[in-house]
Design a binder for these strands. Structure first.
Length: 165
DNA sequence: GCCAACGTTGGC
DNA sequence: GCCAACGTTGGC
């Protein structure tokens, strides 16, 4: 039997890569590259599987918050930007035989009609345990409990079936 | 292994 | 821009 679907949160700075960039990408799909934290890497490489769902979160912007939902559509693979000397995410010690950084391919599923802001999330008692809301946390890839995921969808006015397409 | 210095994240 | 919190680096 297949493993249960897991849920995640992916942070991005919209000035660098916004959810709308993903929404407009070919097949609404991109490699989620540039993650340079080892704990986040482990979630990408070892935690995620095709079919998992992720909240996409905008940070470092006027109204930080959840802006969309994406699905993992490809298994973990080495992040190609680590091999590119011209790329800001270049990793001098990485080789194709021994990659350091990993990514998964994600596809936009739903673009929220409005931002579910960080302030709203904080105001929701049912979400008090979310990793995102813990003091000092700054991981850009985080696991999300299914109940929390469902609650955020509800705040966005979505029903569970809305993310199954 | 300890820890100070420095860099980064990210809300405000 | 400020600053808290965390991660990384490097001397010892």
């Amino acid at each position: 039997m297949a493993r249960a679907r897991r849920h995640w949160l992916l942070k991005t700075e919209p000035s660098t890569y916004a959810f709308d960039d993903l929404w407009r990408a070919p097949r609404r799909t991109t490699g989620w590259d540039g993650v340079r934290n080892h704990q986040a890497k482990l979630f990408l490489r070892d935690g995620m599987a095709v079919g998992d769902l992720a909240l996409v979160y905008h940070s470092s912007t006027e109204a930080p918050g959840v802006v969309g939902v994406a699905r993992v559509v490809g298994p973990a693979r080495p992040d190609p930007t680590q091999f590119d000397p011209q790329d800001p995410h270049h990793e001098p010690w990485a080789t194709p035989e021994a990659p350091v950084w990993w990514l998964v391919d994600v596809q936009a599923v739903v673009r929220l009609a409005r931002v579910v802001t960080l302030a709203e999330l904080r105001a929701e008692p049912a979400l008090a345990g979310m990793a995102l809301l813990q003091k000092g946390q700054r991981l850009s890839v985080q696991p999300v409990e299914p109940a929390h995921f469902a609650r955020v969808l509800a705040l966005a006015g979505l029903r569970p079936a809305d993310v199954e397409r």
